[in-house]
């Protein structure tokens, strides 16, 4: 822990950057995969790099490639992008108790780089008492730099790239997030919340429109959390 009070500084940002750097190395591999796929789909090199730099959300970028054609349908693009990225709404909300304590410009500046991995790390840290928002921001920077650099590499490397899946790299994020989940509390209440979230996400996967399962599962788990309150004698 480096800050007991909520703040955003260079030291925390650097720490966050270093913490997410090992994982970001794998993000490079996915950036390469995206760059390759983008060029094969027909995006220009500048479009591929700009998309990674501005959108910075891998799953929705791959989904956009599927929609890419001469006339790209705008409404499906908006809906797909929103559905895949709607989990950010929940991730941001979960950090609200901490980010609300910094001025608005900083608050939304930080959130520009929120992504699965740095959110999970930051939330775990904040629950353990860390208050430096640089963890989130620096972690996001590491992921962003590697995502964009990977995309660029994917454009210039045209052969000799091993299939990330054959190396098991498609499982990096899943395994990483799993350790984050397991690092949290494991009591009956959490087990029930997780079971409800898991069951709902699977039902949504088969019954609800595509890409809504993460939000559906998370909201269901949240509702259980709202009605089954924790016994309070711990620091928030």
């Amino acid at each position: 822990m480096i800050s007991a009070e909520v703040c955003l500084d260079k030291r925390g940002t650097w720490l966050g950057f270093k913490r997410l750097l090992p994982l970001s190395m794998f993000v490079v591999a996915f950036g390469v995969a995206f760059g390759l796929a983008a060029v094969q789909t027909g995006l220009s090199k500048s479009e591929a790099v700009l998309m990674s730099a501005f959108v910075f959300a891998g799953a929705s970028q791959f989904a956009a490639l599927e929609l890419w054609q001469e006339e790209i349908p705008l409404l499906p693009l908006i809906l797909t992008t929103f559905a895949i990225n709607a989990r950010h709404l929940l991730m941001g909300a979960s950090l609200y108790p901490w980010v609300r304590q910094v001025p608005v410009a900083k608050r939304y500046g930080l959130l520009t780089l929120i992504s699965d991995a740095n959110w999970a790390v930051a939330l775990q840290d904040y629950r353990q008492g860390e208050r430096n928002l640089g963890i989130l921001f620096g972690g996001g920077l590491a992921l962003w730099v590697c995502w964009v650099a990977g995309t660029f590499l994917g454009l210039i490397l045209t052969q000799g790239i091993p299939d990330p899946k054959a190396l098991g790299l498609d499982m990096v994020l899943g395994c990483f997030l799993l350790t984050m989940a397991l690092g949290g509390k494991k009591d009956l209440r959490h087990l029930v919340i997780w079971s409800v979230a898991g069951a709902t996400s699977l039902l949504a996967l088969y019954l609800l429109p595509a890409n809504t399962h993460v939000v559906a599962g998370a909201l269901a788990g949240g509702l259980v959390g709202a009605f089954w309150l924790e016994d309070y004698n711990e620091p928030g």
Partner: peptide, 13 residues
């Protein structure tokens, strides 16, 4: 309670 329940649930989902 909602936020806390939801944040772990995002991971599971």
């Amino acid at each position: 309670g909602f936020i806390n329940g939801m944040s772990g649930s995002v991971l599971i989902a």
